[in-house]
Simulated assay, not measured.
Amino acid sequence: MKILHVEDTPEISKIFADILSTKNYDFDSILDGRAGLELAIYKEYDLILLDMCMPKYSGVDFLLDLKSRKPSELSKVVIVSGLSMSSIQEQELLNLGIRSVLRKPISVQSLLSQVEPEIAF
């Protein structure tokens, strides 16, 4: 499975990389949303883990640009964010076509349930 993780906090990016590497997943971690979008457009991923709160180029910017440039990829996006969202905001994201929304702090089991949905925890 090929995974893209877009997260502006290096410490969180490192934690996700450690978790995914223990499972031997093929993944790219990127700290910049715009660079992450380019990877999502030009490379093939099975899953895109996206932080919503990034400076200069937010997760919303990423999603809107992804929708206009390669809408088929939206269903691969899992929002992983500490952002406080209302149920209406979360539903709007789901209506956009993303896979799901996970809240930080996130457990290893919650993360892996998105990567390995067929495994019940």
Rank of each mutant, 00 (worst) to 15 (best):
E118K: 10
S107P: 03
K76F: 09
P10N: 13
L31W: 01
F62V: 07
I19G: 00
K43H: 08
D28I: 06
P105S: 08
I3T: 05
S87L: 15
F27T: 04
I12M: 14
A35C: 09
Q109P: 09
S86E: 10
L93Q: 03
G59Y: 11
L20C: 12
K70S: 12
S68D: 10
S84Y: 06
G97T: 14
M54E: 03
F16V: 12
F27K: 02
F27N: 02
D51S: 07
N95I: 06
P10R: 00
V101W: 03
Q91N: 14
R103M: 07
M52P: 02
M1K: 12
P71M: 08
R103T: 08
P10L: 02
P105D: 10
F62A: 06
L37P: 01
V80S: 01
I88S: 15
D46S: 03
T9G: 01
V6Q: 00
Q89E: 10
M54Y: 02
I106M: 08
S86A: 09
M1Q: 10
Y45F: 14
P105L: 07
A17G: 14
S68C: 09
I119C: 11
M52L: 14
F27Y: 15
G82H: 01
P71H: 13
I19Q: 01
I88F: 14
S72L: 15
I12A: 08
Y57F: 15
L74P: 09
S87I: 10
I15W: 08
K56R: 09
P105F: 05
K43F: 08
I30Y: 00
L4F: 05
A40S: 01
F27A: 04
Q109A: 12
S110I: 04
V6K: 00
D8R: 00
T9N: 12
L64I: 07
K56I: 06
E90P: 06
Y42L: 13
I98A: 07
D51I: 01
R69S: 15
V6R: 00
S86M: 10
L47F: 10
D18E: 13
I79T: 03
F121Q: 09
T22F: 14
E11V: 05
I88R: 15
D65E: 13
